[in-house]
Design a protein around this nucleic acid. Sequence first.
DNA 1: GTCTATAATTAGATAGAC
DNA 2: GTCTATCTAATTATAGAC
Lengths: 219, 219
Amino acid sequence: MKQPKARARRTREDIRERLLEAALLEFGAKGFQGASTRAIAKRVGAHQPQINYHFDSKESLWIAAVDHLFAHLTRAMQGLELLQKLDTSSGVNELAFAFADMIRRFVRFAAEHPQLNQIMVHEATSESGRLAWMTERHVRPLYDRVRPLWRRLRKAGIAAPIDDRLLHYVLVGAASTIYVNAPEARLLTGIEPTTTRWVKIHAEGLVSTLLPNLPRETK
Amino acid sequence: MKQPKARARRTREDIRERLLEAALLEFGAKGFQGASTRAIAKRVGAHQPQINYHFDSKESLWIAAVDHLFAHLTRAMQGLELLQKLDTSSGVNELAFAFADMIRRFVRFAAEHPQLNQIMVHEATSESGRLAWMTERHVRPLYDRVRPLWRRLRKAGIAAPIDDRLLHYVLVGAASTIYVNAPEARLLTGIEPTTTRWVKIHAEGLVSTLLPNLPRETK
DNA sequence: GTCTATAATTAGATAGAC
DNA sequence: GTCTATCTAATTATAGAC
């Protein structure tokens, strides 16, 4: 659209993008209140008022950062649309394989982007406008999509005996807590849980545990 | 020991106790930085400087509150000492029953005292002196005690195929996330997860899932 | 767009009367 | 032991020069 100022636009988007990434790190590590806009700006060599220039307020920055990260999650979880198709048209075995794949993807994403679940936990411990917004806008679509699939897998005897309303928190907790608490996990276990080796062990363990009667993959 | 001032002592301990409980609620909901000493004092009808009088500083209050809550957990988990004995002397089936009981107790505690896991998560997302202290003093004893038991249960084919170093976070996450995030869970699921009915469903689901080959209880 | 300076709040901690 | 008043430090947001 705008032909001139291409260089300037690139720079503008660039600083915004870098501020978003820095914000995710700070918000994830310290929570909304604990994170300071000075520290976020400093991470990218900018000054604190630039945050109010590029975003209206600390809260606007938080919203933009969360939108940014959930968009990333949606890309990584593209298989979910696949799941939806499978739910209505295909056999339960294909659904089970796809669900197992979704678990693996989610574990990998939680390991690579702990900020998402860190932010969710920081916000979810007390009611706030941010929590209500995040829940309705980003969490509910995932919850509503996964729940009926789990019910079907349970009826087929493939899934572990966990109620479909509780499953969301069992899965999110079992998959993400070690990455959310990675600073503690490093102290406690002596391992680096985010290596591909450990992520794979973790993901396969969850798949086998949550889908104990997953058929052998044939194809 | 001290005979006079019995009344005064009772009052003093009383206000300290109430400040600790209020501190747990605030620290759990908002994290260390997000919680304000003014809000904690206000919860019990006290003034903010009383916190510095009864405890030296905000950090001292936090330490005292965390000690208080872990002492409570230890009481609720008394079965752990039982587990230790079972590990060396008794059969693996008795160990499995005791482990299942421990899972049930832990789920119940997490539901009744979400502050514990809320505080752990708030702190565990970034390194700090508070995190190192809490990990070594309170978390490691539990971790070190449970890990060998889980190994034995896995070798016996009773436990789900989850590595014993990862199990700690899988169990803590699967058991506590719904209570840590209860404000979100209420919005999302429409259920009140802390009722005894749902806590029981949750606990039995985890026992069946994590110990899929638990023998039928005979005695 | 970026920088410095600063306004307006709010926090934890302390002093001193009672 | 408790209360009011206040100190000091840190925060987000804004104003204005460049």
